[in-house]
Write a protein that binds this DNA or RNA. Sequence first.
RNA 1: GCCCGGGUGGCGAAAUCGGCAGACGCAAAGGACUUAAAAUCCUUUUUCCGGCAACGGGAGUGCGGGUUCAAGUCCCGCCCCGGGCACCA
Length: 862
Amino acid sequence: MSETTSEKRRQYPFDAIEPKWQRYWDEHKTYRTPNPGDEGFDPSKPKCYVLDMFPYPSGDGLHVGHPEGYTATDIFSRHKRKNGYNVLHPMGWDAFGLPAEQYAIKTGQHPRLTTERNIERFRAQLKRLGFCYDWDREINTTDPDYFRWTQWIFLQLYNSYLDENTGKARPVSELEAQGLSRDEVDARRLAYVAEVQVNWCPGLGTVLANEEVVDGKSEVGGFPVERRPLRQWMLRITAYAERLSNELEGLAWPEGIKRHQREWIGRSEGAEVRFALDGSGESITVFTTRPDTLFGATYMVLAPEHPLVDRVTSQSRKDAVEAYRKEIAGKSDMDRTALAKVKTGVDTGGFAVNPVNGGKIPIWIADYVLISYGTGAIMAVPAHDERDFEFATQFGLPIQLVVEAPPGNTEKCFTGDGVSINSGFISGLPTPEAKRRITAWLEERGLGRKTVNYKLRDWLFARQRYWGEPFPILWRDGRHEAVPEAELPVMPPELEDYLPTGTPEPPLSKAREWVRYSDNAVRETNTMPQWAGSCWYYLRFIDASNKERFVGAEAERYWMGSGGAPGGVDLYVGGTEHAVLHLLYARFWHKVLFDLGYVSTPEPFQRLVNQGLILGEDGQKMSKSRGNVVNPDHVVREYGADSLRLFEMFLGPLEQVKPWSTRGVEGVNRFLGRVWRLFLESSDEGANWALSPKVRDIAPSGRQLKVLHETIRKVETGIESLSFNTAISQMMIFANEFTTAEARPVSALAAFLHLLNPFAPHISEEIYEALQRRFSALPAGSLSELPWPRFEEQYLVEDTVEVVVQVNGKLRDRVTVAADAGDEMVKAAALASERVREHTAGRQIVKVVVVPKKLINVVVKP
RNA sequence: GCCCGGGUGGCGAAAUCGGCAGACGCAAAGGACUUAAAAUCCUUUUUCCGGCAACGGGAGUGCGGGUUCAAGUCCCGCCCCGGGCACCA
């Protein structure tokens, strides 16, 4: 009979001890974290807030990628807790979203049911991995007690505007007090309604994101997609562009992520320049980052949607312009910006006047100019802009050189900094100076001004979905207003079917009774996007069951307290896929709440770490279709949760991409077996275990103390820097060292269990319990709650050191010298070495480099 | 095209500040225990040359240069792999 792995003898009885300790922790609420003012709260301890990106509880259950980051934060949290911190380490569910809704459409089952079922499964799986979450703080974004506050925060945005003078959000009531009209106030709210172009897919009955549209058709199903204007809720994130960009500065985030966010926000400095329309009093304003090239503007381009297109188009060009605009209207942004595309556009027949030299230049429309950026119009300088160059070449438009490139430049179209030429009063000036000079010139004459533009767009916040937060908004006489706070949460209606309506009307509109709020008011029927719930969940964890407020003020101050740093959460771990959107949106909401005085720090997350992807055993991305998905449940069943945790950390650096290896799991499982047998023995093939007589109450040797303290140090620094793989290596060295010892000093072994505990909490608790029964001098209680051993430098100090001796950089010998020996003595010892003399014989010694306690390099003439 | 991340044994990797390259683990080979196997324990394992051997010598961190007494680590120029972005004036 062939043998399967599950029949193999277990290294140690993890299948018995893991459930035992999980039950113990649950029953004793070992990881319950009291808030200030709660019973058991110790205000003398410093705080540490350790956060995971909470998961979407999908129907597939946990993936081995989830436990990677979760184990890292778990180890970090346990270490902090053992070192005298109050640690906040919570978990919850980001549970609104499309999969549950689509399942509902197919089966008629309410999304709440599938969501609950999936959460049950996820929670059970996470508990089986022994994480030290305070489950009393569990939250769920679809819980009315949660989303009432998501809706409440939305109302704060709705009721606020950005005060230009202070750059901070203020209540719109201040504007009303200043006597601004209703329209003026509405135009300044941070949450506002606008008509925007969306991708509407009649076939699917929904609006699609740009990424979901390919070649003008829906990615799913291949139905045609139209661009159409739709009334949408928007959030004015652009008002915060400057702060979102600048305030990244003080955060301990990976540089790559910061750069990515800055690029996404895309701040660019330049000038707006007004071009008069030939033969009319009107003008077109363009944005340019290169006002110094104004003399080289040989034509102008408007976005096809630009409102002035009709005014500039000449009679003879009307048909061509109309045809082009129609063609463009049907295309998605994706198609319009498709790569390596040939540029398109048409001449409007109109002309503009270049303000610096009075030259008449033709006005074209082309889709390479976007209506949503800058002013939707550009001055084209084909000599110094690649896009303009390409367009001009294609349509035979003139190219006028106005910047001289530095010598040696061979580019056909030079876009860098140089010296202005053929440019009147700025000729001869280097680019930066030319920019300043011409901008000042334009400003003096009222023809332009210095401006800053951002790539960042306002956030389209409405979705035509069922399974999302309803807006706390009413419509009365064509005007929106807030649902009274006392009526929150606004619950979604019960529906018979969740099918799209076939029109841009959201599914909520089918609930007639629900929509009708009163005789003259109806409810908003859009719902919020999935991002909404995750924008503030880290705040709710602080005070998850507060009925009065989204988070209690005192608890918020304590857990988000940062000792002067901008961010409150001490460690935030998650995947790079959220590098931009989630982190940007959360920062935006946080800043608004900060401005309004609801939170105490300007930034949410101080230290951010991205865990790397775990690939399949074949080095490919894990996917069902490749059949290389590793199920964590199987690993736990075969090797235990401690082995899974330890292996995921031993695999390699947390932030690196790395492949799974089943053999590797066996390796760490064997290590845990070795640790087990360091303490326990079995006379009956592992059916029963008893503490080994080799474990004794004796003093450790100097060598053992050295290994122990080396291990304490490496594990400590490894945890702080999240280099768990090297910490584990060092623990393996410890185990190897003590396995060979006939008598094993209990003090050193007990200290080791403390070090292992954050990594492998179950086995370490179990062994410690057995140890404590025999050696009653050891403190009683759960290892998780006992203090971390103290590292003592003195045990690492040795009387003698081995010094490497090189001749011309090549290793030739080693000499052992007293640790406090002077350079001259060490040098003498090295030169006295026979092996060294063989290599220096008959050659002149040029110099001798001495690196104290490490190395000597004897340099000789060849 | 642009921007990140990465290239070190058969494999995953390690190497504070430039100072013994390959710790630790996997795999492989040999041995002990066993009737046998599994499990466990011990030994070897970058590569080439010489030697029965202990050992000795040379090369070696993607490639080519450079700085330095000394380079995986710093500088310049390339190559390859993985990920992301998409005409933002």
